[in-house]
């Protein structure tokens, strides 16, 4: 319990310090409120618009989670395929790298033309942005397997699949999880990009759209929405770190702390 409090203290102190500095700056510099609202104004906007923000937030959160799922599925599948086939590696890898340079608005309309105004085109955009770190880290992780391990498995009569299942796959898992964490960090902004660059019919909900609409005439509310995205990214990251302890417990170095 004490330990938990002590752990939470540094980020709390730092956040409080930054918020204080921000508040002071707004107070002293006289910067206009629709250019930079003070933290207390943002907090007030967050509270007053909680219903609106929350209902938009749930839409965006769903996009992030599903989009990341799609990104993971694509990234991992491609990584395994590339690992197993040098031919595929040569064919696919350059295209995967190139795909990261595509400005999303260029394909936004096309995606909607294919899949309509619903959530799916947005998931595709998020996946396009997020699969890449998963792909690269997993490919490297698979290649970094101790070559003697598959060798050992061969003398135990393991098939190619069993060697993969017992050696390469678990050995690449920590790297893949690192990739997933990077993907997660860009996934939230990916959802924002997805919402604001794919055409929508009427009022498709979502925090991204809400923030873009608000930024000009309801700046504190735009900031309040941003605070939600900010907190959501941290929460997701933390969840994944906890999950990692269960999925790949061997990769967590013991810190030598008494338990």
């Amino acid at each position: 319990m004490r330990r938990g409090v002590l752990r939470a203290l540094p980020p709390i102190v730092l956040t409080a310090g930054l918020l204080g500095a921000w508040e002071l700056y707004v107070e002293l510099s006289g910067v206009e409120a629709d250019l930079l609202p003070a933290p207390h104004a943002v907090a007030a906007a967050l509270w007053q618009n909680r219903g609106l923000l929350w209902s938009n937030f749930t839409v965006t959160a769903e996009e992030v989670v599903l989009g990341l799922g799609l990104a993971l599925a694509c990234g991992l599948t491609m990584a395994v395929a590339i690992h197993l086939s040098p031919l595929l590696r040569r064919a696919v890898y350059p295209l995967a790298v190139g795909s990261q340079a595509i400005p999303i608005p260029v394909i936004g309309v096309l995606l909607v033309f294919w899949w309509g105004f619903g959530i799916f085109p947005k998931l595709v955009v998020i996946a396009l942005i997020c699969f890449f770190p998963v792909l690269v880290t997993t490919v490297d992780g698979l290649a970094a397997v101790d070559p003697d391990q598959p060798k050992l498995l061969r003398t135990l009569d393991a098939s190619r699949w069993q060697a993969f299942r017992f050696a390469e796959l678990p050995s690449a898992l920590p790297a893949a999880l690192s990739g997933a964490r990077i993907a997660l960090a860009v996934g939230v902004i990916g959802a924002f990009i997805a919402e604001t660059t794919t055409p929508t019919s009427g009022a498709y909900p979502g925090l991204g759209r809400e923030i873009v609409t608000d930024i000009n005439f309801a700046t504190p509310r735009a900031y309040a929405g941003t605070v939600l995205l900010f907190a959501f990214a941290i929460a997701c990251f933390h969840t994944l770190t906890i999950a990692e302890r269960r999925i790949a417990p061997w990769s967590i170095q013991p810190r030598g702390e008494p338990r």
Binding site: D146, L152, L153, T155, D157, A158, F166, P170, L173
Partner: peptide, 28 residues
């Protein structure tokens, strides 16, 4: 048919000690 006990023990870090010992049986 021969089995190798390598110079480095090459236990798989992701398996428990017992599962490492039983690896050949799992593979079978």
């Amino acid at each position: 048919p021969a089995v190798l006990m390598p110079q480095r023990d090459l236990l798989l870090p992701w398996l428990s000690a017992l599962d490492n010992a039983a690896l050949a049986l799992r593979i079978a």
